[in-house]
Each structure stands twice: as C-alpha cells, then as structure tokens.
C-alpha cells in the first residue's frame, strides 16, 4: 500500500516536472518572460485604453482583473498544450500503452503549472497595488493568497478539458484560444459580471474563476473571511466539477482511442 502510494506520487511529480519542462518549456529568460507577461500586459493596457475611450473610467478594475486572470495562462493554455502536444509529438501512445496509473499521469501535468501560475500572480498583483497606490494596510494578505492559489487551481479544469479536446482534434488549439478570449468577457475580468447583458450572466456563474476573481476583488477592498467564504466555497465546487469533467473526458477518449486508433493520427 505504502509502496503503491510512493509509486503514485513519484509518477505524479515525474509527470509534472517532465511535462512542464519539456512541453511548456522556454529556451531563454527573455522568451519565458515575454510568453508569460508580454501578451497579458499589453492586452491589459489595450483594454484600459479601450475603456477610457468609451467612458469606463475605472482602469484599476481592468488592471486587477487582468492580473487575476494570469494563472489561466498556465492553467488553460499551459495544461492544454502539455496534453494536446503529446499527440503532435506522437508520444501519447507510449503513455497510454504504459501500465502507469492514469490519475497521476493526467493530473500530474498540472502541478508545476499551478505553482507557476500562483507565483506569476503573486508577483504581478503587488506591483499593480503599489502602482495604483492602494496600499496593503486594509488587506487580509493570507486570505488574498488563498484566493490566488485557488484561482491557480480551479483554472486547470478548463485546461484539462481543452487539452483532452486537443488530443482528438487537430484544431483543439483554436478552441482553447477562443475560450481563453471569452474569459476576457465572461468572468469579470474587464467588465463586472453584474453589468453584463442578462443572458450572459448565468454563463459566467457556471464558469470557474468568476467567484474567485470576485472574492479576490472584495478581499482587496478589505473583505474578511466570512464575507467571501460563500464565494470561495462556490469557486472550489465549480473548479472541482471542471477538473472532474476533464478527467472523465480523458478516460472516455482513452477508451475510445483503443478501438479507433484516433490518438495517433494527426
């Protein structure tokens, strides 16, 4: 039992580190920094100016929102790439043919992305707080950190689902990208969810990150444990459901691939 558990964790961390290094890899500090901060930073500025032009005079809201979205670069793009690219590199059949337990194989891919995503937002957020002169005095930092790590975890569910889709579809990357862009609208990053058209609001409520981002914003405004516990509980629940859907989908596709051989064809 202990030996088995040890094996499970070894596999988990090996998978995690290996997939993080080999597939979401960078060759220089420059390309790492730009891939992580480049697009998010400039698109954030772009949204700020678009907002300024149409009379949305709350750049702070947009900046904070886009920073809270940063873990999704790891969680959504990173993870779906590490899973989806297996297909492109033709390594999937080796993995599936191995006797390794599936859960660590699959979920292992997330570990370093979660850490990386968390650190990213942990670095970026204080910079913004200082930039806007908000100060840290009224903020429950522990609670804020909890919100951030939660966001880094719940965003991975989307990555698992999109990664699994990328395993069977050559254009999976496109769907991931489209979803990533819809997040600009739907989860309260640039536009407050309650200001969205009525038909979009239910969609927002069924997506991961929506509650987490709202909770983080409230914590930044001085909210305490009890104020946000409902939001955080909801975020955990929604996040888990998405991770579970991703994993189930992966198992289904794995089974289907044995009969159709679809995983190897590109």
């Amino acid at each position: 039992m202990i030996r088995k558990l040890g094996q499970f964790f070894r596999l988990y961390f090996f998978q995690a580190w290996f997939s993080y290094r080999s597939l979401f890899a960078w060759s220089t500090p420059f390309s790492y920094m730009t891939s992580k901060f480049g697009f998010p930073f400039f698109s954030m500025l772009y949204f700020v100016f678009i907002g300024k032009f149409v009379g949305f005079d709350n750049p702070e809201f947009i900046v904070i929102g886009n920073i809270l979205l940063m873990p999704s670069i790891n969680g959504l793009y990173g993870i779906s790439m590490t899973i989806g690219d297996e297909r492109q590199f033709g390594a999937m059949s080796y993995l599936l043919a191995s006797p390794a337990a599936r859960a660590p194989l699959f979920l292992g891919r997330a570990f370093f992305h979660i850490i990386d995503g968390f650190i990213t937002v942990l670095v970026a957020l204080p910079i913004a707080i200082l930039f806007f002169g908000l100060g840290f005095s009224g903020i429950n930092l522990l609670l804020l950190a909890l919100c951030l790590i939660l966001l880094s975890i719940t965003t991975t569910g989307l990555g698992f689902i999109m990664g699994t889709i990328s395993l069977v579809s050559r254009d999976g990357w496109m769907f991931t990208n489209t979803l990533g862009q819809l997040l600009f609208i739907l989860i309260g990053v640039n536009i407050p969810v309650d200001k969205l058209p009525a038909f979009l609001q239910p969609i927002s409520n069924y997506l991961p990150m929506t509650r987490g981002i709202l909770a983080a914003r409230q914590v930044l405004d001085g909210a305490r444990w009890l104020d946000v516990s409902g939001l955080l509980g909801g975020e955990i629940l929604v996040g888990l459901v998405y991770i579970l859907i991703g994993y189930t989908l992966f198992r289904l596709i794995e089974r289907a691939s044995m009969t159709t051989g679809s995983l190897d064809s590109i």
Binding site: Y46, G51, V54, G55, F56, F184, I191
Partner: peptide
Amino acid sequence: IFSAVGMLLAHAAG
C-alpha cells in the same frame, strides 16, 4: 472579442 469588450465597457459605463 475585443470589440465586444469595448461595447460592453461602454454599456457598463452608461
């Protein structure tokens, strides 16, 4: 998407 963000921000700003 970017146009939609612009329109929705305008809407949010009244």
